[in-house]
Every structure is written in C-alpha cells, then in structure tokens.
Simulated assay, not measured.
Amino acid sequence: MATTSPREVFEAYGKQYQRDFSKFLSLRGEEMVSGGRMVLSFAGRTVEDPSSIDDNAYFTILSQTLHEMVVEGIIKKDDLYSFNVPMYTPCQREAEAIIMNEGSFELWKKDVFLLRWDAHGNTTHDPFFDEKQSAKLVANRVRALTEPMLVSHFGSNCMNCDVVFERYSKKAAEYLLKHKSSCYTMVISLRRK
C-alpha cells in the first residue's frame, strides 16, 4: 500500500487485516482463562484515510529504490509490479473496533507513541545527528523485514540485497535530512472476558 494505491487496494488490505486480527484474537481467547491479560504492540497509522499521509515512508523508499533498478534494467518491471509487502497498519479506531466486534477481550488500557526509525533524534538542529549512520540503521531494519520476501520474489540470481540496501541507505539519508522519521506505534492492553 502506498498513498498512490487505488482505493480497492486499501479496502482489500483492510478486510484481510480485519479477518486476520479477528482470528488472532479468537484463538488467543480460546487459550486464555477468564481475566487473563494480553498486551499487544504494533505499528499503526496516524489517520483513518491511509491514502492521505505516508505513515510508512520507509517502505515508500524501498519502492523508489526498486523502481530505479527497473529503470536501469536491473530488475524486470513486471516483477516489481507483482511484488507486495503483506503489511497493513491500522488506525487506532480500526484496531479497537475489531477488538470490540470479535468479543473475546475487553480493552483495558491503550497508548500510542512515536517510535523513531533509528535510535537517534534525527533533526538538523542536533549537532550529533549523522544522517548516513541513521540511514544505515533504517536500511538494516527494513532489510531484516523484507530481504526474505525480496529474494523469494525476485530470485537470488537477480536480487543482490547488498546493492538494494546500499541504494536504500542513500535515499533514506536524503529523506532523514528533510523529514522527521517516526513510526506510529500502538500499545493495547486487553483483558479476557
């Protein structure tokens, strides 16, 4: 999903997330005793409309990196357009609605916070900020999440992940100089009914 994706893509991902999260809650509900507690922490998005803000810019940078590799003939256009990262970040209202509708748990506490992409405060006003070092940390994080999917989809013969994430790191450094880089993170404490 990206801010430019068609509405149908957002709807399909949202419906799949609803099914998956409901099933997860249902199965955890079967395992837990009444009164048992569960704390969940997951990435979310700050707004209800997923097309309005790029809350997952670190994946947009990956998309841009792969697109440049298509233009240079390193990977095939059809391979890029058939590649999807199976990730959906709900807004807080969506997550809460699924919890209530599924019915196994009571929402006990909730909190949201911004988690930096890297371990550093990335601001041009910080004299210790090193965008290249921060970008390398971000690239390593995204690589850990996506390398198995990239190799599986594109094949190890045509996908040199060292090259991909070296390019990614350069793009991320440019991004970090211009933008604050935080992930919207939700923490939800649930109590089994």
Rank of each mutant, 00 (worst) to 15 (best):
Q133H: 08
S26Q: 14
W117M: 02
D49Y: 08
V138F: 03
T46N: 11
L80M: 08
K110V: 08
I74R: 13
R93C: 10
A57V: 10
M100Q: 14
P127T: 15
L115D: 12
K136G: 00
T146K: 03
E30Q: 14
Q18F: 02
L145N: 00
V70F: 02
A144E: 07
Q16G: 01
V142L: 02
G35Q: 06
G36H: 06
L114T: 12
E68N: 15
S41K: 09
V33D: 14
V138R: 04
D111Y: 12
V39E: 00
K110S: 10
L107Y: 10
D130N: 15
G29K: 14
V33S: 15
T123Q: 06
Q18C: 06
G14Q: 08
A43I: 08
F21I: 03
P148C: 04
M100L: 15
P148S: 07
D78I: 06
I61T: 12
S82L: 01
R141A: 13
V39C: 02
A95Y: 05
N122Q: 14
G73Q: 00
C91R: 08
F21K: 07
F113G: 11
R141I: 10
N140A: 05
H120P: 00
L62V: 07
A57M: 10
D111A: 15
M69E: 01
V70A: 05
L80N: 11
S26M: 12
A144I: 05
T46Q: 12
Q133D: 14
K15A: 06
K23S: 10
E68F: 03
A57N: 03
Y58K: 08
M149T: 02
A119E: 06
E72Q: 13
T89L: 07
Y88D: 01
A144H: 15
F21N: 00
K110G: 02
L80G: 07
L137F: 11
F42W: 10
N140Q: 11
K76T: 06
P90M: 08
M32Q: 15
R93L: 00
Y13H: 03
F24T: 07
C158T: 13
F59D: 00
S152W: 06
P50Y: 09
S63M: 03
A97M: 14
L80H: 04
F59R: 03
Y58S: 05
E31R: 12
E48F: 11
E72Y: 01
I99C: 03
C91D: 10
C158R: 15
E102M: 02
S82F: 06
E94Q: 14
Y88P: 00
S52A: 10
V47N: 03
W117P: 00
G14V: 03
I98D: 02
I74V: 04
T123A: 05
M87G: 03
G35T: 09
